[in-house]
């Protein structure tokens, strides 16, 4: 039976990324996106901790490379669906931190006009068709969006992000079968961070590799280091080309780790097996550090330039946060006026 093996070993894959054949422009873009996501979530984490943000926030700090590597291979007319931990999925497509911040604060200027909070974010015009926190719920919906794309005949694809826990849901397995039997243009992305809430995958499944489900459904698949933005991007490029060519669905399992607990700003080192020992090691497998070290080694980036970039992004995000704090709440009419079209 397939195992994640070394991919799940936090001590492995800490080396700087192999960035040969990548342009500086491409690398810088990915770095900027990851930094925007990391720093945005740091702001959300801090303000969740102080109680300024009330809605449940599932942070994906440490998992940024996946959404960033995937999003660079998509077009605006593709349809991407997230889940409960989707800030990165949204920001990698639009870099709209203000829209996310305002939404977490329940403000009208938020992506869902303050009606959704962190768990219900959307940006249709940039290809983000929505995220919801019911585990596995968007997998069938993304499959249906792929059916619609196939009927449209424009070569657009659907992308379905879900976690390792979602593969334990029946509707997800049904969707794999439906997509495979109907040859639907959908890219299934399993972000395997080894945990569902507090419970390690070793306590939930007979093997830690969810890719076996793809093989069982005859879905073309691969297993990737999710903390390597270059490998993520390359795998996605292969997958997207395959799907757009009409061959049907594709499944990529991205192995990663979340630095924060299941929900909120805590580290959750007191729950789950191995988490206390492994968190520090996984922080050494930081997708951002591995890219910046590679770029610095290859003289594509200097430490000074990195510092300037960090400051620039931080300052923009601080402005976005302050703007979101000042933004208006929805009017009370929204409560009833939005129930029906």
């Amino acid at each position: 039976m397939i195992q994640l093996a070394e991919l799940a070993n936090p001590a492995a894959y800490q080396h700087p990324l192999d960035i040969s054949f990548c342009t500086k422009e491409f690398l810088l873009y990915q770095l900027e996106s990851m930094l925007i996501i990391r720093k945005s979530e740091d702001i959300i984490s801090e303000n969740f901790g102080t109680g300024v943000i009330k809605c449940p926030c599932h942070l994906g700090i440490g998992q940024e490379a996946i959404a960033v590597g995937i999003s660079t291979q998509l077009r605006k007319t593709d349809r991407v669906f997230g889940a409960h931990r989707s800030h990165a999925h949204y920001l990698a497509l639009n870099r709209n931190s203000f829209g996310l911040f305002a939404e977490t604060l329940g403000k009208y200027a938020g992506s869902s006009h303050g009606m959704g909070g962190s768990m219900h974010i959307i940006d249709r015009k940039n290809g983000f068709w929505g995220s919801v926190p019911i585990v596995g719920a968007t997998v069938p919906i993304a499959t249906g969006a792929a059916l619609a794309a196939k009927m449209d005949g424009n070569g657009d694809i659907a992308v379905s992000y879900f976690g390792d826990g979602a593969t334990e849901e029946g509707g997800v397995q049904e969707s794999f079968n439906l997509a495979a039997s109907m040859k639907l243009p959908v890219l299934f992305i399993c972000e395997n961070n080894l945990f569902a809430s507090h419970l390690h995958i070793d306590l939930r499944q007979p093997t830690d590799a969810t890719i076996r489900y793809a093989e069982a459904h005859r879905i073309k698949c691969e297993l990737v280091d999710g903390n390597d933005v270059i490998e993520v991007s390359k795998a996605t490029e292969r997958a997207v080309e395959y799907i757009r060519s009409g061959f049907g669905p594709y499944y990529i399992e991205m192995v990663t780790y979340r630095w924060k607990g299941h929900v909120g700003n805590r580290d959750d080192i007191d729950v789950g097996v191995q988490r206390k020992d492994n968190l520090l090691k996984w922080k050494q497998r930081d997708p951002i550090r591995r890219l910046t070290e590679a770029m610095i080694q290859q003289h594509l980036l200097s430490s000074e330039e990195l510092e300037i970039l960090n400051d620039k992004i931080q300052s923009k995000l601080n402005d976005d946060w302050n703007k979101a704090l000042d933004a208006e709440y929805p009017k009370s009419e929204a409560l009833l006026s939005l129930v029906y079209a």
Binding site: P140, I141, G144, A148, G171, M182
Partner: peptide, 28 residues
Amino acid sequence: KDRIIDTPVSELATTGAAVGAAIGGYRP
């Protein structure tokens, strides 16, 4: 048969697929 689609025995996934298609502009 492209518009009258007989499906696997999967109530949840097929209903979800209809939801996704409806979000994508169809009226399933």
